[in-house]
Computed example of a mutant assay.
Amino acid sequence: MKHDRTFDPQYGTAVELMPGVRRLTVNNPGPFTFHGTNSYLLGTSRLICVDPGPALEGQVDTILKAAQGAVIEAILITHTHVDHSPGARLLKERTGAEIIGCGPHRPARALLENEVNPLDASGDKDYAPDRLLEDGEMFEAAGISLEAVATPGHTSNHLCFALAGEPVLLSADHVMGWSTSVVAPPDGSMQDYMASIDKLLARSESVYLPGHGGIVRDAIDYVRDLKQHRLDREASILHELTKGQRSIPEIVSVLYAAVDPALHPAAGLSVFAHLEDLADRGRVEASPELSLAARYRLTG
């Protein structure tokens, strides 16, 4: 996948993307956030805030300044990673708006015996929504109608939001504008992620507003590329296993040889997600048991 390095975050500024849609990028750049996490303000005289970001008072001040006195009627949350949802509590304190959207943070599966969740600190365990939205449920505030689209994979509670009457989807971290999504067990599930990719391919939205990076145009083609990227990665993993039993670090050292070694642990989680999916489908088996420390081989 090609990364768009031209994205200008314009920190502290509400960037109008289309009538009634503005983007605010949090100044929290990093290897997993690109130039920062995107919050969105929907509406004009009345507003919905989507993903206020981390629990930074300055970020809430930026959102309220951008609102220019317009009432924020609802705070919409796509998923519970600490760069997306904790700011909702601060914004609610300042505005009284309800927190609406995804359910509480939860792993995609139970931890295996002796397994430690390497991304445990990334989950917002204090998230407490006032109202949950189910897949396909319509929500209206500030004169705007949105459809909740359940897209588990990156997290088990991940939601996208489709703007009714518009070819626009707020895709959060399921489809980002600069990189493939992190899918890391036990928080994430590759099987769920791929099913969610297919779900979006069956929809009609052609413009995505992602949680990181710029606008994704020609979104269906972009999502097809994302799917093919994952299928190619799976094929590469299977090819490595044709050479014999391999550990995750051994697979990563080959498949991610051109990637900064500092990112290899994250790459290992992605490989683990693929191996977990392949094991569920009976394509590979682990010795002694499915884990980051196991050695993997082809079945049969």
Rank of each mutant, 00 (worst) to 15 (best):
residue 80 T to M: 01
residue 155 T to Q: 03
residue 1 M to C: 12
residue 94 R to W: 05
residue 284 V to C: 15
residue 190 M to K: 05
residue 196 S to C: 06
residue 121 A to Q: 01
residue 124 D to I: 11
residue 69 G to V: 01
residue 66 A to T: 09
residue 73 E to A: 07
residue 177 G to I: 03
residue 201 L to P: 04
residue 230 R to M: 13
residue 255 L to S: 03
residue 177 G to A: 01
residue 114 N to S: 11
residue 184 A to R: 12
residue 200 L to R: 10
residue 5 R to M: 11
residue 29 P to G: 04
residue 40 Y to Q: 00
residue 250 E to Q: 14
residue 63 I to N: 04
residue 254 V to G: 09
residue 176 M to T: 13
residue 215 I to W: 01
residue 25 T to I: 07
residue 150 A to R: 14
residue 56 L to S: 08
residue 161 F to P: 08
residue 22 R to M: 05
residue 93 E to N: 02
residue 76 L to G: 05
residue 21 V to M: 10
residue 28 N to Y: 00
residue 254 V to I: 15
residue 74 A to I: 04
residue 289 E to D: 10
residue 298 L to Q: 05
residue 203 R to W: 06
residue 125 K to A: 11
residue 15 V to D: 13
residue 25 T to F: 08
residue 140 E to G: 03
residue 171 S to Y: 07
residue 256 Y to I: 01
residue 250 E to T: 10
residue 197 I to W: 02
residue 126 D to N: 04
residue 248 I to K: 09
residue 146 L to P: 03
residue 85 S to L: 04
residue 253 S to V: 08
residue 207 V to F: 00
residue 13 T to H: 14
residue 123 G to F: 14
residue 127 Y to P: 10
residue 86 P to R: 06
residue 55 A to K: 10
residue 103 G to D: 11
residue 90 L to R: 07
residue 118 P to Y: 02
residue 294 A to I: 10
residue 281 R to Y: 06
residue 171 S to W: 10
residue 170 L to Q: 04
residue 151 T to Y: 07
residue 204 S to F: 06
residue 83 D to F: 14
residue 262 A to V: 06
residue 157 N to A: 07
residue 81 H to L: 13
residue 42 L to P: 08
residue 26 V to L: 03
residue 58 G to F: 09
residue 138 M to N: 05
residue 9 P to N: 11
residue 298 L to S: 13
residue 76 L to A: 09
residue 156 S to E: 10
residue 271 V to A: 07
residue 220 I to Y: 00
residue 253 S to R: 12
residue 5 R to F: 15
residue 89 R to Q: 14
residue 141 A to G: 12
residue 70 A to H: 01
residue 40 Y to E: 00
residue 278 L to K: 01
residue 186 P to V: 12
residue 198 D to P: 01
residue 89 R to F: 01
residue 213 G to K: 07
residue 214 G to S: 09
residue 284 V to D: 13
residue 198 D to V: 01
residue 37 T to Q: 00
residue 77 I to E: 03
residue 130 D to Q: 03
residue 66 A to Q: 02
residue 204 S to G: 10
residue 255 L to H: 02
residue 2 K to M: 11
residue 142 A to R: 04
residue 42 L to H: 03
residue 278 L to V: 03
residue 103 G to F: 03
residue 52 P to S: 01
residue 3 H to A: 15
residue 103 G to C: 12
residue 16 E to L: 00
residue 156 S to V: 12
residue 275 L to H: 11
residue 54 P to L: 10
residue 220 I to E: 07
residue 284 V to Q: 03
residue 288 P to G: 02
residue 154 H to V: 07
residue 288 P to A: 13
residue 242 T to D: 09
residue 124 D to E: 09
residue 280 D to Q: 15
residue 195 A to Y: 04
residue 91 L to P: 00
residue 254 V to T: 11
residue 204 S to R: 14
residue 226 L to Y: 07
residue 58 G to T: 04
residue 161 F to A: 11
residue 293 A to I: 12
residue 156 S to A: 15
residue 270 S to T: 12
residue 117 N to L: 07
residue 291 S to D: 12
residue 280 D to I: 08
residue 104 P to R: 14
residue 162 A to H: 14
residue 216 V to Q: 06
residue 117 N to W: 08
residue 238 L to N: 12
residue 171 S to L: 03
residue 151 T to G: 05
residue 111 L to N: 10
residue 262 A to M: 15
residue 257 A to E: 14
